[in-house]
């Protein structure tokens, strides 16, 4: 574990049991599970922006939820500032929550429609008993609205979410996440529901807050182009495993793993002259029965015998550039 890391994850697994009929459970006896996250290790440095990128079903959202203790891990450990989340009591976990926050994808669903903007942002302050009185509470809420450029704050305090535009809603969600000054924020596809022209604004706003507070930030996305421009480091996930990780410019600019290459090659390029090379075929297999050996071998253009039997380990190929592929080991 390195000195300056805030979160350290070791061999993290999350298997969701699959609901089956009563009879088939009795007769077959075995329990099937969806292996959403299946043994990943990584760390997040202080003030670092880490991207988790991959297709749907790669386990990136489950990883984010595990990190915040919203989901209980099947196996493995998450160490936050030297404390293992597993052993904490509910009370200790609550005080830790002050330091870790999440921003969800859909601001139309993540805000309670029956709460005013003021109540939404004040709630974390109340739960953590931060403000001494109502006046101080309102001041804190106003300050945080100013920070996310929902101005003038007086005009928005008593509005309900349905009276806000999508962009304003996501700003309120950002304000709520940052109001306690967290050390660690997870954002799960925070702009994919928003219009293109306002996406960049919300992202820049979040990045400014992250920088100002010195928070560590996990950005979960399916968009590798955005990940390259936003993140310091990225981890590319596929079927619950990390396939490649390292500095974002290196991983996405010069990918080593065939899956990362395929993912980057599939991104449409805003240039009519650009001619795309061949796209890999097939779709992501079921996480109930992931392929043996390397999970990507069913779609990999370079797959050979060893890939079908032996699972490749994540090894350092270049400085701080890790790849899980037999081509490099």
């Amino acid at each position: 574990m390195s000195e300056d890391s805030l979160v350290q994850v070791e061999n993290l697994k999350k298997h969701f049991p699959l609901k089956k009929g009563f009879l088939s459970t009795v007769f077959s006896g075995e329990k099937e599970t969806v292996k959403a996250v299946d043994g990943i290790s990584f760390h997040v440095g202080k003030g670092e922006i880490l991207g988790l990128a991959g297709e749907s079903g790669s386990g990136k959202t489950t990883t984010g939820r595990l990190l915040l203790g919203l989901e209980k891990a099947t196996e493995g450990s998450i160490v936050f500032e030297g404390k293992d989340l597993e052993g904490l009591s509910a009370r200790e976990l609550r005080s830790l929550r002050r330091e870790m926050q999440i921003i969800f994808q859909d601001p139309f669903e993540s805000l309670d429609p029956r709460m005013t903007v003021k109540e939404i942002i004040a709630e974390p302050l109340r739960v953590q008993r931060i403000a001494r009185n109502e006046e101080e509470l309102e001041e804190r809420v106003k300050d945080s609205l100013k920070e996310v450029e929902v101005v003038p704050p007086e005009e928005f305090l008593f509005r309900f979410p349905h009276e806000l535009s999508g962009g304003q809603r996501q700003r309120v969600a950002v304000a709520r996440a940052f109001v306690l000054g967290p050390k660690f924020v997870v954002a799960d596809e925070p702009v994919s529901m928003l219009d293109v022209s306002i996406r960049a604004e919300i992202l820049n706003l979040m990045l400014n807050l992250v920088q100002k507070r010195g928070s560590s930030f996990i950005y979960i996305t399916h968009d590798v182009a955005l990940a390259k421009h936003i993140c310091d480091r990225v981890a590319i996930m596929y079927l619950g495993k990390i396939m490649e990780s390292g500095e974002s410019e290196a991983v996405i600019g010069t990918p080593l793993h065939p899956y990362t290459s395929a993912l980057v090659a599939a991104v449409p390029v805003p240039d009519p002259k650009y001619k795309r090379s061949n796209v890999i075929s097939g779709e992501i297999p079921s996480p109930v029965y992931p392929p043996p050996g390397c999970r990507f071998h069913t779609r990999c253009p370079y797959a050979h015998e060893r890939c079908m039997e032996e699972e490749p380990r994540l090894v350092e190929v270049e400085k701080d550039h890790y790849v899980a592929c037999h081509l490099y080991s």
Binding site: D195, S197, A200, L203, N204, A225, K228, H229, S248, P270
Partner: peptide, 24 residues
């Protein structure tokens, strides 16, 4: 012009994203 800039290319170097202020 604003819309094209709002789509960062996966091919280019790391840049700060630009946006169109306001909303439709």
């Amino acid at each position: 012009q604003g819309l094209i800039k709002a789509f960062p290319s996966v091919k280019g170097p790391r840049v700060r994203l630009s946006s169109i202020p306001g909303q439709p």
